[in-house]
Each structure stands twice: as structure tokens, then as C-alpha cells.
Amino acid sequence: MHIIVCVKQVPDWDIPPSSFKVDEAAKRVTPPAGVAAVPSQFDTIGVEAAMRLKDKTPDAKITIMSMGPEAARDVIKHSLAMGADEGLLLTDPLFEDLDWYQVALVLSTAVKKLEDVDLVICGRQAVDWDMGVSGSGIAELLDWPALTIGKDVQVNDGTLSVERVLMDGFETVEAPLPAVATVSNELGEPRYPKLQQIMQAAKKQVTIWSAADLGLNEAQLGPDGRKLTLERLYVPQSDAQCEMMEGDTPEEMAQNLAKKLAEAKLI
């Protein structure tokens, strides 16, 4: 079984809201200086899902696929240290400013070129734009089923089985391989690489493919190939003014709060 896990490199999300900055003219986020980019949170959970399958079926091969700048090699390395076998870095100046249709085009074309892929695992959404369409998009472009927002991913006799997180419950769905699964945090904590694994990861192979390697051209990946444009990016302002409850003791503060809530007719 050959499993591809799609791992995107994103700005670190674990920063105080006050250091989150947007360059409105460039319509881009400005990451705070000195804070390194990280693998998207749900994608590391995707690696964990793949590793759990490999724990049961040790001859499964896991390839980590990331599209991004040369620096995205770091997120591949982290995933390799978690136990994945190989890396595939899709990097090209033409990949720099794509919309979601084009991203799914690039990723699905790479899956096609690999030929022997049984399962593609994606995050439910990348934690930069939170769009949550690429898993379904890759599946659609490959004409494969996609089982989305999984908390448990199993493979038995060529059948993928995913327990999906619904807004009010869970459902288990099955589909024949090859297929795409997307995963959510309910799957559980991703394993943490041990020092020895980090050292081993340095020796694992990372293949690099460009747009030309994938047979994709500028017409497909340029502005004319976009389906979606970004008109504006901004930080919403909150006008809330917090009134802190006074009081010499916590009891007094609590009583003041109850009074305020009653005065405002909120309780």
C-alpha cells in the first residue's frame, strides 16, 4: 500500500493575536520576524493517521508531498522523522501564487505521475486560509472518492473506512481504494519524533518535481487558470470595551457581575 500525505507549510498559528499582521496592499499575512513556518496542524494529524496504518501494515510506504518553496523541505523532514518513508517536494516559481483549483491540479497531477498510489491523506483544512477544499478537489480531479473530516482512518482488503466528524455526531463511511481521506484533530495527538528518528530522517530521500516535471504549463498555473481571486485581506476590528468587575473579594465581584447582567437585561 502506498500512502501519500499532503503536508502544507504555513505560518506558525500559535502566536499571540497581537503579533498577527496583514499587509493589506499586498493582500498577504506578514509573519512575525524570527518565527519559523510550521506544518499545517491537521496535516501532521494526517501523518499520524498514515503512521497508524503503517503500524498495522508495516510494508505500507508513506510519501510526504508538499507543494511550496524550497523551505517547505522542513515540514517534509518533520514528517519523515515521524516515520514516513520518502518526501516529494513540488517546487517551482509557477507554484507561487495559485488558487485552490490550481493547487488541487498540481497535487493530483503529482499523484497521477506516481502511478501506484492507493490512498491520499489531507488535512480537513490548511490552517492558513482555512478553506478546506483541496482533499475533495484532488479526489474529484482523479475521479476518486473522498471521505472527509475523519477521526479514524482504516484500510481493510482494499476498502477505506473513515469515521467522519459531523456537526452533531459521527458517521462511518466506506469506499474502495484508491481514495482520498481528510482528517481532523479528533483523530488524536500526532506522535513526536525521537532524536534518533530525526537523525534517520536526514538520510531519507526527498524527490523534487517542477511544473515541467508534471507537464503543467503557465497557462494552467498563471492568473488565467485561476477560478478564484482575492479582492481584500484585512484584520477585523473589535469595538468591545471590557468593563472589569470591581470588588474587594471574589464574592463581591461575582455579585457585581450578576447585578450588571440583570441591569443589562441579559439574565
Binding site: 498559528w13 498577527f20 496583514v22 499575512v29 486560509w129 482555512d130 485561476r226
Partner: peptide
């Protein structure tokens, strides 16, 4: 024009589908 929260709710983006 569709406005949506992104970056974990830190930002909002306005998009247009061109097709």
C-alpha cells in the same frame, strides 16, 4: 463577493469566483 474568516479567525478575506 464572499467574505470569510481565515487564519484561524485572525483575518478576513474577500474572494470572487471568476467563472
Amino acid at each position: 463577493h464572499g467574505t470569510r474568516p481565515c487564519y484561524g479567525g485572525n483575518a478576513r478575506a474577500v474572494h470572487v469566483v471568476q467563472s
